[in-house]
C-alpha cells in the first residue's frame, strides 16, 4: 500500500503525484520506472517512469496522462488515498555518459521522465540543452524545472501558442547542424516523436538514446510482452531497457505492438468513464500530424 502525499494537475489531463515508496526512493536512479496497480484483485499493471525521488522523505514522483481506464482511475485518486501496489525501481538506469554537450528532447508528457536524466547529465558537468514540445501552451509541463537546470532551453508548440511554432525535430536538427555537434541526444516522448528525432540525428550521425514505454505485465523479464526489435535482435524493454540506441529501434513494429489491445482498452475506458475520451483523440491527431511530416 502506497499513500498519495501530493497531487498536482499540470495540464488538462496530465497529473503529477508524489507517493510514499521509501525503498524505491532509496534505490532508484535516473531512467528507471515503476509498475503500478491500483487494486490487487482486478487492477492492471502499468509502467510509469519515475520523474523524481526523495530518499529522505521516502517518496517518489510520477507524472502521467489520463489516457486509459487505469490512468483515468488514478487521476481520480486524491491526497491521502492509497495505491495498492507499486513495484520498482525497474529497468537499467540511464548510462550518464561523460560528454561535453547533451541535447535532451522531451515531448508532451515525456518531459517528466526526461527531467531526472537531464539533471543527471547536468550534474556530470555536461552542457545541457533542453528542447521541449507540446501541442499547445496548456499542455507544456515542468518548464520552470527545466529552466532551472538547462544551459539552453528551447520550447516549441505545434500551434505556436507558446515558444516556437514547430515540432521538436526542427530545433534538434539545428543543434545537430551547428559547427560543434552535440555529443549525445536523449529523446523521450510519444513513439512517433522518438522515431523522427532518431531519423533526424541519424542523418547527422549524433548518438541518440530513446526511452521506450511498452506494454508490460511483470517488469522483470517474465512475460516478454514488452519485447522490441533493436538492431534486428529481440530485446525486453523491462530488463534490457528502457533506454536503447534510437538509431537501431524498429519504431514501426513497436507502435503496432503498443496498439495490440487498443480495442479492449477503449471498451474498458468507456466503461470507466463514458464521456468521450478527448485525450486519446488528441494524441491520435498528434500522431497523424507528425506522421505527415
Amino acid at each position: 500500500m502506497n499513500k498519495i502525499i501530493e497531487k498536482k494537475q499540470l495540464s488538462d489531463d496530465v497529473f503529477q503525484m508524489c507517493i510514499e515508496a521509501p525503498l524505491i526512493a532509496r534505490s532508484r536512479k535516473a531512467g528507471q520506472f515503476i509498475l503500478l496497480q491500483i487494486d490487487t484483485d482486478f487492477g492492471e499493471r502499468i509502467p510509469l517512469t519515475i520523474a523524481n525521488g526523495d530518499a529522505e522523505a521516502g517518496t517518489i514522483t510520477i507524472v502521467f496522462q489520463s489516457v486509459g481506464a487505469t490512468t483515468h482511475k488514478l487521476s481520480d485518486k486524491n491526497v491521502g488515498d492509497y495505491i495498492e501496489n507499486v513495484l520498482g525501481p525497474l529497468g537499467q538506469p540511464t548510462h550518464v555518459k561523460d560528454v561535453d554537450w547533451v541535447v535532451c528532447v522531451g515531448g508532451g508528457i515525456g518531459v517528466a521522465p526526461m527531467y531526472p536524466i537531464a539533471k543527471a547529465f547536468k550534474e556530470s558537468g555536461a552542457k545541457l540543452t533542453v528542447i521541449m514540445g507540446a501541442r499547445n501552451k496548456d499542455l507544456l509541463i515542468l518548464e520552470e524545472d527545466m529552466k532551472a537546470i538547462a544551459d539552453e532551453l528551447i520550447v516549441c508548440t505545434d500551434d505556436g501558442s507558446y515558444g516556437r511554432k514547430c515540432l521538436v525535430t526542427e530545433p534538434l536538427k539545428e543543434c545537430c547542424q551547428r559547427e560543434q555537434q552535440p555529443d549525445e541526444v536523449v529523446a523521450i516522448g510519444p513513439p512517433i516523436m522518438m522515431k523522427f528525432c532518431s531519423l533526424t540525428t541519424k542523418e547527422c550521425e549524433v548518438p541518440t538514446t530513446v526511452s521506450l514505454n511498452t506494454i508490460m505485465i511483470d517488469g522483470t523479464g517474465m512475460c516478454g510482452g514488452c519485447r522490441v526489435t533493436v538492431g534486428g535482435e529481440t530485446k525486453f524493454v523491462c530488463v534490457d531497457g528502457p533506454e536503447f540506441d534510437g538509431h537501431k529501434v524498429d519504431f514501426d513494429n513497436m507502435m503496432k505492438r503498443l496498439g495490440a489491445y487498443k480495442k479492449q482498452e477503449q471498451v474498458n475506458h468507456d466503461k470507466y468513464h463514458d464521456h468521450e475520451c478527448k485525450a486519446e483523440k488528441q494524441a491520435d491527431e498528434l500522431v497523424a500530424k507528425q506522421g505527415d511530416k
Binding site: D41, F42, G43, E44, R45, A69, T70, I217, D218, M222, C223, G224, G225, Y261, Q264, E265, N268
Partner: peptide
C-alpha cells in the same frame, strides 16, 4: 505471445473475468 504472458494475463491478472482491467 509467450505462454508466460498469456497465462499470466489469464491467471494472475484474471483477464478472463469481466471485472478485470487487464486485456
Amino acid at each position: 505471445f509467450s505462454a508466460n504472458e498469456y497465462l499470466t494475463r489469464s491467471n494472475l491478472m484474471r483477464a478472463f473475468e469481466e471485472k478485470a482491467a487487464t486485456p
